[in-house]
Amino acid sequence: MRVLVAEDERDLNNIVCKKLTAEGYSADACYDGKEALEYIEAAEYDVIILDVMMPEMDGFELIKTVRSCGISTPVIFLTARDSVEDRIAGLDLGASDYVIKPFSLAELMARVRAVVRKSSGNATNIYEIADMTVDTATKKVVRGGKEIDLSAKEFALLEFMIRNKGVVLSREKIENNIWNFDYEGGTNAVDVYIRYLRRKIDEGFDTKLIHTVRGSGYVLREGK
């Protein structure tokens, strides 16, 4: 899952990104509204965490521009302005959530999961396919009653795929979602991680879940 953090207080931006990374998400940091707009136009994000008071372009203006471009990525406002009017303005402009500073990092992560869940139409944090369940909150993966231990990146890849189960995902799309702009690991990183993941979740099971679609990419689905 890929998250954009637009917050002009560098220390805060930094810690939020660190936490997101620790959760296995890929996070991009930007420090003003214009920069944020460029990021949003350049990459596809699952969630945007947006400060209201930013130089160049404030959060309200930014979300207006973004929505008018037809981008419906969920936005979580991060703000010290806690007045009801501000909250109403933010939500009416199309924000999915409104978090008041100071906030708890754990709560922010829960809200991130919540808006993603909502936008993918899932009612809980638990996704299921065949005999496998993936809990995005606890990062637990169980297949055939057995818990599978995944690294953060592997989990991020699995989470992306299960949220888009049945959809063929190109290598580029996967790369964009799993790694942020700072990553320069080479183009075959996706193939490498798909191999790791296959080894952990498909080896030893009759039903394979990860399928290669020649010329297009990968898909997570039951059966052929």
């Binding site: 207080e9 939020v16 008041i100 500073k101 100071p102 708890s104």
Partner: peptide, 10 residues
């Protein structure tokens, strides 16, 4: 609030 938010998050 902003510095408090940073401190708490850190």
């Amino acid at each position: 609030r902003t510095p408090v938010a940073v401190i708490m998050a850190q």
